Amino acid sequence: MKVFKVVCICTIYVLMIMGTRPTVSLFAHELGASINHIGLITSLFSIIPLLFAIPLGKKIDHLNSKITLLLGGYLGVLGIVLPGFFPNFLGLYLSQLIAGSAQTVLILSAQDYIGRISTKKNRNQYVSWFSFGVAVGTLAGPLFSGIIADLFSFQITFLILAGIGFISCIIIHLVPNEYPIKSKKSPIPTSKTKSTFVDLLKIPSLRLALLFSALILFAKDIYLTFFPLLGLQFGYSNSTIGLLLAINGIASVIIRFYLAPITNRFGTFNVFIGSMIISCVAYIALPFFPQIVIACIIAFILGIGLGIGQPLSISLTIDNAINGRVAEALGIRLTVNRLTQVITPAIFGILANLIGLIYIFLVSSTVIALGTGIAGHNKNNRKTDVMEDSRVKSI
């Protein structure tokens, strides 16, 4: 079945990518980088996607799926293998730039592929399977890389992860090609000029999906970038840090099995709000409990919060995109995500040097709470507008 092949590809590919995210921070620390330098290095992962995700998504809408999947796959392997052959800052810089760009190409292509082979009826199910595969790769990657780094070295870890990523490239060759969907007329009135991504941003529910996606990625990137450094302060080994990141990923996988009944009962928006509240509480507790058992519990709770939002934001983006422009809408989502991932480690790395690593997690909790409040306010305003419109029509 097509969808399971894509899920398998993304699981292996994400394992490779996510295995390197904490490894980059720890390897840079071993090379003598300061916290703000580490923040700048990790921000390079998202700098090129930030600039080109929207035009890239627009291009993917008009290309055969297999071309872009193969491009993202092989380019990602190239990026990850570089620090293995060049174990220095230059190798890390180039690796982050190439791997970040490649991941954007592959994930955008995979999400668009899901959009092409799915219908309105089974789309949430397909996206749920896709997100499940990503979550499995997310939990397995850090655990695997932590064990390999303890057994061998960071240099060997990059080489082994690149070898694993190469397997996903082989599977891509077995995936049937899907041709572009013909674009239909936009339901939103446009001028005679060429359509732009601004047309998509006029959709209120799409804007809300983008805001939630940014909040989730912000919380996730803080954890992946700075928790390994906090773990070193607590005296954890690389394997222990990898284990805690894996527990976080396990929670994200488990919660996906209950996502459909939860959203059916409480509604998508309320579930989003709940997931953000859970994340806020976890971030407040995280720096004050270095005991390994309590740290595992906090990592699991945080994984539940972060695991809920990501698949829902993808589904909302696909559902609210104009038909034939799904990849472009997903490109906008990725641009917002990458902007978050560029700003977050760079600014918070500098902030960590000023106020200390522990307080970074408290500031992060405040940012998540403010963003959630803004989303709730906008949602309430939309409800009020709809009620007023219905009253006017009834007069």
Score class of each variant (00 low, 15 high):
70 L>H: 07
170 I>T: 12
35 I>S: 10
61 D>Y: 08
119 T>L: 00
340 T>I: 13
38 I>M: 04
99 A>Y: 01
193 T>D: 07
56 L>I: 12
194 K>V: 08
78 L>R: 02
328 E>V: 04
48 I>R: 11
289 F>Q: 06
219 A>C: 10
210 L>M: 14
371 G>I: 04
49 P>N: 12
314 I>Y: 14
215 L>P: 11
216 I>H: 12
359 Y>N: 15
100 G>K: 01
101 S>Y: 12
137 G>F: 09
134 V>L: 15
255 I>T: 13
153 S>R: 03
249 G>D: 05
336 V>Y: 06
39 G>Q: 05
252 S>I: 00
75 L>V: 14
258 Y>E: 08
218 F>R: 10
291 Q>P: 00
45 F>H: 10
71 L>A: 14
100 G>S: 07
312 L>S: 12
302 L>K: 06
90 L>P: 08
209 A>N: 10
254 I>S: 11
276 M>P: 07
10 C>L: 12
156 I>D: 00
144 F>V: 13
339 L>P: 04
60 I>Q: 06
221 D>F: 14
315 S>R: 01
104 T>V: 10
184 K>W: 00
352 A>H: 06
179 Y>Q: 12
49 P>R: 10
317 T>A: 13
354 L>T: 13
275 S>T: 09
148 I>C: 05
72 G>R: 10
350 I>Y: 13
132 F>W: 02
13 Y>C: 08
180 P>D: 01
288 F>K: 06
381 N>H: 07
372 T>L: 03
107 I>Q: 11
44 L>M: 14
328 E>F: 01
92 L>D: 11
68 T>M: 15
359 Y>W: 09
55 P>I: 07
159 L>W: 00
212 F>C: 13
184 K>R: 10
394 S>R: 13
221 D>A: 06
255 I>P: 15
371 G>E: 03
284 I>G: 12
16 M>T: 13
21 R>K: 02
245 L>I: 07
346 A>Q: 00
178 E>M: 08
111 Q>Y: 03
34 S>E: 10
23 T>P: 04
193 T>F: 08
192 K>A: 11
